[in-house]
Design a protein around this nucleic acid. Structure first.
Lengths: 257, 257
DNA sequence: CGCCGCATTGACGTTCGTCAAGTCTAGTGG
DNA sequence: CCACTAGACTTGACGAACGTCAATGCGGCG
């Protein structure tokens, strides 16, 4: 994992003048550019890339950025807020496929058939940069670094999902939750937050759906971790007390033989 | 799912002269081109695309096409044969992340960090077309259809993995195996094979790893399907007798409440 | 202040993993 | 051609992990 210098994720005042209206913030000025944009661009390329974002969109907590079946036009870079993505089977079962935070790109599922195949729902008030896919395609023909960046983002998502498959396919409840907590903490840390203290933006049920567990099992496992002194849990506030112990749980083979 | 006309997957004699040496077969002549290449190219573009494949590589059953940690240079289009891909955790647990057949592209996981992050192992003698990634990148800057094609392939993989996550996260053993069989049969059918009769190229253990089950559970579930008259199983030969029943199993909510 | 959604906890049942024994098949070598 | 073997597969008995159902607690928001 690449270490990213601590950044303040709160939008700067420059972007939000007192009247509350959003003004345009160029990618080249954005404090998240290291997360969602390629590095090492020339000034001309920078300027070009600023045109990739046609506008911003604010999403209220609980609202959907896109839904399964909707036409696909754009990828979205999360500027602030927190999203879950979930797929739904015919029988209404649904499965959370990921949690996404500032600097991450969502909407990649829509490319293959020009329709979104999952829902993206804001877990807190959020704002995204809207990047029409035809522009991304056009610009990445001209800017090699951008082309490679797009490929890397998609590849990263594939690799991330491999990790989730490993988790769902072969880990037990404690390992799943430990892996989940460590992953979340690490991503928040990379964004300048505390490495050990986090506020969950999702319910136990959503965590359970992501991890292939019921909400009760998630709750019980949290309680067990707390009993064992590895974490402190008060509702959605979690403080990791023993990072190493959690790491050991994830890496220990289920050695019941 | 797009229906693809039945094709004969056996390499044509033109490609394999009597002396056994492989001669170059252009993508534009390949009977798999509808699966791995974009459609509707101009003749010049076709010719250009033929240069994307620098060579072929034969892989013996049980051998690896690439392994976790190896440098990434190329994507591979499967020409003949059958592969599994699997990721391995630190503790040696491993998880099959996919089974791949003729016409499919593997190696996408390597793009993000210029290293492969999983193993690709041939489950039967196989042959792949080697496509250096720098060429793919170069050509897709010039040929829009190819650029879009690459994006679609990666997006398709992301969507496929969403489906696997749904399966692993919320289905029970019978549903998993039914979904697996139907998926396999459908993909084989799209390649001109029987829609209901298939030969598994993988062991029960590999199926189990993919589905997040033990080999015993896979075996038992096969037996149960056979008892119920839905399939006929003799070792790796499977004949689907009641496609609808299997479909119903997949789509039926686990309605135990 | 009261309500509602979320979370916790307990009791119980089901599913699936584990362990073990035994069978089948393909491949090998005499 | 058959015996032999190793690996794959099947089947059964048992238990652990987790899901289900239900009761209760807690906190945030109107």
């Amino acid at each position: 994992m690449k270490e990213i210098p601590a950044v303040n994720l709160m939008p700067s005042n420059a972007a939000y003048p007192l009247d509350g209206h959003t003004i345009r913030v160029a990618c080249s000025n954005c404090n998240l550019r290291e997360l969602c944009m390629p590095l090492g661009l020339s000034p001309e390329e920078q300027a070009r890339i600023d045109d990739m974002v046609v506008n911003r969109r604010k999403i209220k907590r609980g609202a959907a950025l896109f839904r399964n079946g909707e036409a696909f036009h754009s990828l979205f870079a999360i500027r602030t807020g927190f999203f879950k993505t979930c797929v739904t089977a015919e029988d209404k079962r649904d499965q959370v496929t990921g949690f996404h935070m500032a600097g991450e790109i969502i909407g990649l599922d829509g490319i293959v058939n020009d329709r979104h195949t999952c829902d993206a729902v804001a877990l807190e008030d959020a704002e995204v940069c809207v990047m029409p896919f035809h522009r991304i395609s056009e610009f990445s023909r001209e800017i090699n670094a951008l082309q490679h960046h797009v490929h890397r983002i998609m590849s990263r998502e594939i690799v991330r999902e491999h990790g989730v498959m490993l988790l769902l396919g072969s880990m037990r409840a404690e390992e799943r939750l430990a892996a989940f907590l460590l992953n979340l903490a690490q991503r928040l840390h990379a964004r300048g937050f505390s490495p050990s203290e986090l506020v969950l933006r999702m319910t136990r049920e959503e965590i359970g759906s992501y991890l292939g567990l019921t909400l009760e099992t998630v709750s019980r496992t949290f309680s067990k971790f707390a009993e064992d002194g590895m974490v402190e849990v008060r509702q959605r506030h979690v403080r990791i007390l023993d990072m190493d112990a959690l790491t050991r749980i994830v890496n220990q083979q289920a050695c019941n033989y």
